[in-house]
Design a protein around this nucleic acid. Sequence first.
DNA 1: GGTTTTTGCGGGAACGTTCCCATAGAGTGG
DNA 2: CCACTCTATGGGAACGTTCCCGCAAAAACC
Lengths: 337, 337
Amino acid sequence: MKKHQITIVDIARQLNISKSTVSRVLTGHPRVSEKTREAVLKLASELDYQRNMLAINLMSSQSHTIGIIVPEFVTSFFPMIIMGAQEVASKAGYNVLISQSNESYETEVANAKVMLDNRVDGVLVSLTRETRNYDHLKVFQRKGIPIVFFNRVCDDMQVPKVVVDDYEGAYKAVEHLILTGRKRIAHLGGPTSLHVSKKRLEGYKDALRKYNQPIDQELILDYDLNLDKVKIYIKHLLDLPEPPDALFTINDPTAFEAMLFMKAKGVRIPEDIAVVGFSNNYGSTLIEPRLTTVAQPTHEIGQVAAQLLLDQINSDASEWKPIYKVLKTELLVRGSS
Amino acid sequence: MKKHQITIVDIARQLNISKSTVSRVLTGHPRVSEKTREAVLKLASELDYQRNMLAINLMSSQSHTIGIIVPEFVTSFFPMIIMGAQEVASKAGYNVLISQSNESYETEVANAKVMLDNRVDGVLVSLTRETRNYDHLKVFQRKGIPIVFFNRVCDDMQVPKVVVDDYEGAYKAVEHLILTGRKRIAHLGGPTSLHVSKKRLEGYKDALRKYNQPIDQELILDYDLNLDKVKIYIKHLLDLPEPPDALFTINDPTAFEAMLFMKAKGVRIPEDIAVVGFSNNYGSTLIEPRLTTVAQPTHEIGQVAAQLLLDQINSDASEWKPIYKVLKTELLVRGSS
DNA sequence: GGTTTTTGCGGGAACGTTCCCATAGAGTGG
DNA sequence: CCACTCTATGGGAACGTTCCCGCAAAAACC
């Protein structure tokens, strides 16, 4: 079923030398004569020798792989982060094992197990919207496998985390709406279990306070990020006796749904209602009007998270520090506000 | 740096039995007494034993991993395919090693090497737009590692391929434009090196022929899929003495760029010019007017490709057949036409 | 009750590397 | 020329499993 693959033993036998010597040549060990080095290299390339990472991994007790667990990767947000992480990881000789939890806690648990089975050298995690229990992730800590959270982080664990300044991003977004004359700014937020939801809500509230605008609980909704439900919430908001004149959503896809629904209803954007999203997803410049949004440095998030992980992998567990990296956001003002 | 992980030897020692017996219990071998089975299972769970796939992989000379090489994964197209493939693979106990070639031939070659090093059990490939030489992929064949192409396939290799009926999809798209009264239908196609580009161009031409419309070379352009260049081609088309009244593009992102540019120029869609894309990417319902497009069953492509790969992995090389799977497309008529 | 079959378990090779230790021969110094 | 160092190489354990083989004890058979 599988062809025999060339090994260093094959090379050693053909040259009548020991596999140790072949190994030395192939790993660049200095203590080997020029003559044998050349002979080995020549034969290796002739036979199309390919080192067997399965053996190297077992021998070194390292998989040379880092795992990434993300909630999804069809919207552009996580793929961009993954790209950044992959860049850093590849450069350091690590592979990346990507798995999607599909926003399901159970899948996340299963994915974590796969990562453990495969002895990943470290793992990058962004939680599902429904994860409340972290036992499956604490296992990594217990086993001495570095873990770094990004975007959707776990407050319960003392490990490095990479986030953007959600508070400030939300603050700037709402401030912008206030300064452009909006009086009733609604917020369609994410599940309160998520750290990002809380922070963005705080930023929203503080901006209102700062500018002496009332905080109207009626205008603050949170939902489970199931996009199908957006319509319901928007309809509710529009049907209020005093409907909002601005909407700040937890993320861009939510804003898209809201805009599509409102446009279908004949609500004019931004005249009747201004909309601001979060993350600058792919599509925010496609929709009309173009969506004002708080851009996240996705690529950088991935890079930084991967770097923090590699730093841990290459250092003693005793030196691990729960670094909390907060990256800047940027408000991109476009047509929707 | 790394904590000691529990092995079957640890368990064996503690229970005063041999590692063979522990192994038998853990792999579900029938020939083991109920008493010892329970004891082993109990201790294993107490010690939080996790099987070491690195060892299993080496032992079995299988990585239990399949590789996927895609040109990119920020637009939704490839992620959807990957999801489908991952589903099938996980169900069969395989991991998925994803790598992006970033449309770069050299990166594709490097990725292929990583896959070989890691002894993937099989590989799923969609070529870059610039791949002309296939030596790095023929290596897989030579080494007896199954390979399946999807979407952007390689005509040079006799291996299974999964594509959609690009010809028919294009035909239907253009037919639709003709039947809605368009007289001058332009085609902004992809690089002629790609199989899909050729097929879609054929479909375009045949539809015109079928309805006795002239094939005007002036209206047929091909480009390298670098989206920044779309403006240039569209400008060229609009500046023609007799500009087109319809545009059929190689894919949706191209259509998006074209629409944004034309809308900025004051060209009305679909009144002045109708637009039809290909693939039904994320965003096609966001842009206004909503884009008419030829939908591809992305999820299914991934599933089918992965299944074909698994079939090969689990059969003798002598039985491998270069199955050519052609999936159906569906024309989604929306506002842009 | 002796022979055969079945059951439960242990020993050890194997997977393909790396790495430590040993050793022969060449080179160096006084 | 002898003791020493250095260089190039070989031998073999180790990584954590699985799997084949063998063997003793228990079970089944006539």
